[in-house]
Simulated scan of single mutants.
Amino acid sequence: MSGETLLEIRGLTVGFDVPAGRLPAVAGVDLSLRRGEILALVGESGSGKSALSMSLVGLNRGPGAHIGGEVLFHGRDLVTAGERELRGVRGKDIAVVFQDSLAALNPTQRIGDQVAEMIRAHRKVTRGQAGRRAEELLGEVGIAGPAQAARAYPHQLSGGMRQRVMIAIGLANDPAVLIADEPTTALDVTIQAQVLRLLTKLQSEHGTAIVLITHDLGVVAEVADRVAVMYAGRIIEQGTRDEVLFDPQHPYTMGLLSSVPRVDGPAVARLPAIAGNPLTGVARPAGCAFAPRCPFAHDACRAEMPPLRRRYGGTAHVDRCVLDDAARTRARGALEVLAP
């Protein structure tokens, strides 16, 4: 996909001070986001997806947080930007839709007031104008009876409606970038489908670039343009949706895909699972972080961290694995990953 690059992430690191030392939540990530594309960040819980996305707008700054590298947005480095400058970016240029809508919304304020508050934070409009625009936004995200919903409190709405409210707040100022952190978690499949249709509508009609954080590969297959797979704070594979889902190169990606239930095969009593547990402590191995869990690891995997490499000339499909093509083919067959 071609288009203007909106975000350029270079060598991003995020660490948090814990009793045992500094926890490396993000360890040197390079990513770019273009206008009108959906970039999915995929990985198990604790892989660094949310830490990466929240650092883009300084939402995880604090006394025990250490953020380095660059996050360039229209030439501005948001890592070094002050809080006042970031407040001008959050909600206006880059908006965030949080995973837990009930926790993110203020339980003591009406829905319409919360949407209007975001509008008035960045635009010089009257309270009445902001209220009317809030109702319009609620209608645009598919809430039936937007005027009635605007007068409701968060607990009076269903989970799907609250998630739509969060998206309406995110869209209040027509941002260039929308960060959606697990937007379909805990929603039933019908509501999930409605939320995903809404996100793709934003992409196509408004040119909104979306960073979609998810562990649901079904969601990725449905809406993503590009996919970046994270493990232990690093990007271990990246490419187009079809490249990553149908031609995975890293054993971790293969393991994630092998755990997806199939509708075209025999029923199984138990889905395959990746052995072992993700890294959670401050210590990191010298080599590939996935090596302790990888059934195909050998001495070269443990010697040093593999760099991201292009597997084929001219493609943007990259991975962080030292296995040769024959070994990858055997791994793919052993893990029974998805095929086109």
Rank of each mutant, 00 (worst) to 15 (best):
Glu4Val: 13
Glu8Ala: 15
Arg10Asp: 11
Phe16Asn: 09
Pro19Thr: 08
Ala20His: 06
Arg22Gln: 11
Ala25Gly: 12
Ile38Lys: 01
Ile38Gln: 02
Ile38His: 03
Leu41Thr: 04
Leu41Arg: 02
Val42Glu: 02
Gly43Phe: 11
Gly43Lys: 08
Glu44Val: 05
Lys49Val: 08
Ala51Lys: 03
Met54Glu: 12
Ser55Lys: 00
Ser55Glu: 00
Gly58Thr: 05
Arg61His: 08
His66Pro: 00
Val71Lys: 02
His74Pro: 04
Gly75Asp: 09
Thr80Ile: 09
Ala81Val: 14
Gly88Gln: 07
Val89Lys: 00
Arg90Ala: 02
Arg90Lys: 12
Arg90Asn: 13
Gly91Ser: 07
Val97Lys: 12
Leu102Asn: 00
Leu102Ser: 04
Ala103Thr: 11
Asn106Pro: 03
Asn106Met: 07
Gln109Ala: 12
Ala116Arg: 00
Glu117Lys: 03
Ile119Gly: 08
Ile119Glu: 04
Val125Pro: 01
Thr126Glu: 03
Gly128Ile: 01
Glu135Phe: 06
Leu137Asp: 02
Gly139Arg: 14
Gly139Glu: 14
Glu140Arg: 15
Gly142Trp: 14
Ala144Arg: 15
Ala150Leu: 10
Ala152Cys: 09
Ala152Phe: 02
Pro154Ile: 10
His155Asp: 01
Met161Ile: 10
Arg162Trp: 12
Arg164Cys: 14
Val165Leu: 15
Met166Gln: 12
Leu171Met: 15
Leu178Ser: 07
Pro183Asn: 13
Val189Gln: 13
Thr190Arg: 01
Ala193Pro: 02
Ala193Phe: 08
Val195Gly: 02
Leu196Gly: 09
Leu196Ile: 10
Arg197Tyr: 03
Leu198Met: 11
Leu199Trp: 04
Thr200Phe: 02
Ser204Ile: 11
His206Ile: 00
Ile213Arg: 01
Gly218Arg: 02
Gly218Gln: 07
Ala221Val: 05
Glu222Cys: 06
Glu222Thr: 10
Val223Gln: 13
Ala228Cys: 05
Ala232Val: 08
Gly233Gln: 11
Arg234Val: 09
Gln238Met: 05
Thr240Leu: 09
Val244Pro: 06
Phe246Thr: 02
Gly255Arg: 03
Ser258Phe: 05
Pro261Met: 10
Pro266Met: 14
Ala269Tyr: 04
Leu271Phe: 01
Pro272Glu: 11
Pro272Thr: 06
Gly281Pro: 07
Pro285Glu: 04
Gly287Ala: 03
Cys288Asn: 04
Asp299Pro: 00
Asp299Phe: 00
Asp299Thr: 10
Cys301Leu: 01
Glu304Asn: 03
Pro307Ile: 00
Gly314Met: 06
Val318Met: 11
Asp319Glu: 13
Leu323Tyr: 04
Leu323His: 12
Arg328Cys: 09
Val337Cys: 14
Leu338Phe: 11
